[in-house]
Design a protein around this nucleic acid. Structure first.
Lengths: 218, 218
DNA sequence: GTCTATAGTTCGATAGAC
DNA sequence: GTCTATCGAACTATAGAC
């Protein structure tokens, strides 16, 4: 490796180290609860590098939020494509394609997205202007795609109802992304360990039944 | 009114003005995004009064969060009591009793709880230690009560499933508390205005169907 | 390209006058 | 009980050395 290539590798690693650290620190307490100092410290990088690479704390936040969104939505589209290759997909398989890429973030350590999952909870449930804009920019297109899929899979479901069904599904997905331990706390007896597939199966069954109930009149 | 009583009235109003202002400012950007200066400014009170009355920003935050929680849960218990006076309540009526007092906060201006609704979204969806503790302190008891009600209303639903059903219901309720306009944004055509009763009716129908699907095996 | 040092604000909290 | 004034710390961001 030439000296130039090595320098570029170091430089790229430093940027990614900052992004990884920022993902962790922003996940903990959101945008306002994080400090660029804490991010630089965790990245073992110089505080000034954050501004050199990203320009501002705000720009770093948006970069971190955007970084994994394309991979998530690409995975969703691939799953949809695979489903359609086998004929009209079932509502359950559509919901699995929608939920699995995000719920897995918090439950599948191999993916390394646990911190992004918590960050996504912050932004997706935020009511401030920035959160709404960022959510829209990265997730409105995929939302419309899945709303159309849901509407097509359930006869009698009009588009307005499909939108509400999609938002209900996402609301539940958000609550599953970042485990808070509240379920275990509310159980009376000892909680059984649940696999990702168990969680998705029961959740998809719940949402699918809810959606079909919205198609029936009255 | 005596001078003493008047002074006490003024003092009580100042405290409440700070609480009202804090509710608004904390609602906007959460705990870390709020400043005691902004709260004092909006309350038209002296910044030092916040520490005099409440001790710290942290204590003020917890006081604001707790202030409306008892009223919300008392309303839920009253609704449950009224339902039981007419025999075993239906699942739908139980869910209405659970959701209406919180969803109404954001949609019923007369209640004046729109800011608390947004604050509740922050805390209830937060994954940090303080959010989890505060949610547990104020809402775990009522959660266990409704989990028992749901389990009793749906034959074949075990307690573990009832806990998940409750959490799914709350996740959807949280998404409805603070309107973000995303539903309107995702509609293709012009959105029809929805009343609180319309929102609750369709949401209760969705959740009830989901819960009943969890009772059936497989 | 990466660092040190620090500017310029703004924060939560408090001391002390009245 | 309520105010003014301010402290010390922490913040984002940047200027300038290397």
């Amino acid at each position: 490796m030439s000296q130039v290539a090595q320098a570029q590798a170091v430089r790229r690693d430093a940027q990614e180290a900052i992004l990884d650290a920022a993902e962790m620190v922003f996940a903990e307490n959101g945008f306002h609860g994080a400090t660029t100092r804490a991010i630089a410290e965790r990245a073992e990088a110089n505080p000034a590098l954050i501004h050199y690479y990203f320009g501002s704390k705000e720009a770093l936040f948006e970069t971190v939020f955007a970084r994994r969104s394309e991979a998530i939505n690409a995975e969703r589209r691939e799953k949809l494509k695979a489903l359609h290759a086998e004929g009209p997909p079932s509502l359950e398989s559509i919901l699995d394609a929608l939920l699995r890429p995000t719920v897995a973030l918090g439950h599948d350590p191999a993916r390394g997205g646990a911190h992004y999952a918590r960050l996504l909870v912050h932004v997706a449930s935020g009511t401030d202007e920035r959160s709404r804009r960022m959510t829209g920019e990265r997730y409105d297109a995929i939302a419309r795609l899945f709303i159309d899929e849901i509407a097509a899979a359930v006869p009698g479901l009009d588009r307005q109802a499909a939108v509400h069904c999609y938002l209900n599904a996402i609301a539940i997905a958000i609550s599953l992304m970042a485990p808070t331990g509240r379920a275990q706390k509310l159980m009376k007896g000892p909680a059984e360990a649940e696999s990702l597939n168990d969680i998705l199966d029961r959740t998809v069954r719940f949402i699918a039944a809810g959606i079909r109930a919205m198609a029936a009149p009255g």
